[in-house]
Design a protein around this nucleic acid. Structure first.
Lengths: 332, 332
DNA sequence: GTGAAAGCGCTAACAC
DNA sequence: GTGTTAGCGCTTTCAC
């Protein structure tokens, strides 16, 4: 592989001149420039990124930390971040953490040693003090894990309220909630939204709240248990779509008709909700936009570390599909 | 951030000695070693990976190229590669290419400049000559795109034959095939398998073969068209699960009962096939194992570039689910 | 056993 | 305008 020295020799100039041409910095005679460019062409030269990184202390590389790449929410997010990264000539690195603090820290250290320029982090575990050692811009996404960090979130609380109220509006008498991992702030907000709608209802029981993980299989199991203990339940608000699909599967196993006997609403708006039968009503998050926003915000902060931290909250939107729809048709 | 020089100063040794301790290479007095380690500890020193990479010309980084991270097949694959990478202290980079040659080449060049150590590539576009410029080990996965490269594939041809024969065995009289992008070798193999079963049948029409992309929405559309043109079709072999789910959706839209009126079988074994109603019968690929195998093979080749190219073909396995199952119950 | 010094490929002062 | 050179942080000969 050709180096800058080879180019310099061939063009009969010094490496400094080549560097100037390469970076469009400083004066260089038009003729000389042409000669250098010819030499570059001829040698198929392209500058070694590692050497640049070593010198600059910056790598033009950003990372996205996600807890579970198999949850379709995250590929979509990754896609958005990747697109923005590419557009700005950044290399994109995806880190799958299993929501495991040790894995997260290992990755962070490894990336720091590679002079990563910034990170977008979806984590329930990371604390402020872990970030102190890592001296690069960090954007928190989806789950809040520290104050004085730029954050991208959705209006989980309002969305959860709306979802629960909607189930009421279509005629559900007993509404249960399947919530996610307690360590995740988004889950807690969604729970709070649900609670604020149902708390004062005479029918409400704390056993209408069951908790699992953001995971289909587990959600199916706990929903089956829930429905067997409480056959009166006719509406379920699941804290995310994966769990909503699990609830759908549970209903199917138990022979409960959806939406006639049981209405189900999810949260996220991952594509898969459309592939189920019945399709899943859900509170849609603008996943791609969130990823885009996070990446742009990160790059902005990389370019100017002194910039004040920003927060951005996206709205969620109710999309009615089959898992609730006919119920409203029947009742109103 | 502390450098090796800081450590050397604190431990009262030269940087060479610190380096020796760091790499466990060359003789170093036990006492000195202890002093160095203490200094390392005290300064929270950890070696700069970029400098190492520059010196060594190797980055301890491997990349995976996938055409579509939103297809659940690929997150699962990515997960496997990531696990093996981590286990061997490699950094893992995921590149989403949209099956677009230009994006693929851009990524390859960028990674080459970052001294990437090797790549696993799922591509229909890349040709041998593109790889010649990139002087690192490459493993081709899922789709063959060049000879004299190590390759990981599944037995697409046999699997397709088995899938088609299975539809016959459960009583289908008219079996159609929805195939994937023509540029992908795996699709062509699956088509060949299908053809070898149906070619001689008196009922076979070439219009029973429709082609789309590996994409749900498109598959739904072409399946609807297919079923409207050919209402006699009672079995569909889709070239992958995403398209199989699309076929399921098409049948639902047209009021065709699955599996009673129409049996559907897919290919891949992505989780989502289980979440549909009816669940999707499919030819399961050992996705995780394939990723593991590819990553291990790659690391092996990185460690010894002289190693001969290897091929490995994995078997696929028929998993019966609801989209075909009752049919067999009824008929046999 | 340990240290001095060259060099991986690049950039940016600083000279001229 | 262009060249010389130090240095980014590390590893590895080659002396001693």
């Amino acid at each position: 592989m050709a180096t800058i020295r080879d180019v310099a020799k061939l063009a009969n100039v010094s490496v400094a001149t080549v560097s100037r041409v390469l970076n469009n910095k400083g004066y260089v005679n038009a003729d000389t420039k042409k000669r250098v460019n010819q030499a570059i062409e001829q040698l198929h030269y392209s500058p070694n990124d590692v050497a640049r990184t070593l010198f600059r202390g910056r790598s033009k590389m950003i990372a996205l930390f996600v807890p579970d790449i198999m949850n379709p929410f995250f590929p979509k997010l990754a896609r958005a971040v990747e697109d923005i990264a590419n557009k700005n000539n950044y290399t994109f690195v995806l880190c799958n953490t299993d929501d495991d603090l040790e894995k997260e820290l290992t990755y962070m250290n490894a990336l720091k040693q590679k002079s990563v320029d910034g990170m977008i982090v979806v984590s329930s575990r990371i604390q402020k003090e872990h970030l102190d050692k890592i001296n690069v811009p960090v954007i928190a996404l989806d789950r809040i894990f520290s104050s004085n960090l730029s954050m991208i979130t959705v209006n989980n609380y309002e969305g959860a309220k709306e979802a629960t109220a909607y189930l009421q509006a279509i005629g559900c008498q007993r509404i249960a909630h399947i919530c996610g991992p307690e360590t995740a702030s988004n889950t807690m907000e969604r729970l709070r939204g649900y609670m604020d709608v149902v708390r004062e209802k005479e029918w409400f029981l704390s056993s209408y709240i069951v908790s699992g993980e953001y995971n289909l299989q587990k959600a199916k199991e706990i929903t089956m248990e829930l429905l067997m203990n409480h056959p009166e339940i006719d509406g379920i608000f699941a804290a995310n779509d994966l769990m909503g699909i699990g609830a759908l599967k549970a209903a199917e196993s138990l022979g409960r008709r959806v939406p006639e006997d049981l209405a189900v609403i999810g949260f996220d708006g991952i594509i898969d909700g459309e592939t189920t039968s019945p399709t899943l009503t859900t509170m849609v998050q603008p996943i791609y936009d969130m990823g885009t926003c996070a990446a742009e915000m990160l790059i902005e902060q990389i370019n100017n570390q002194a910039l004040p931290k920003k927060n951005r909250e996206f709205p969620v939107q109710l999309i009615e599909r089959q898992s609730t729809k006919r119920k409203r048709d029947a009742n109103g």
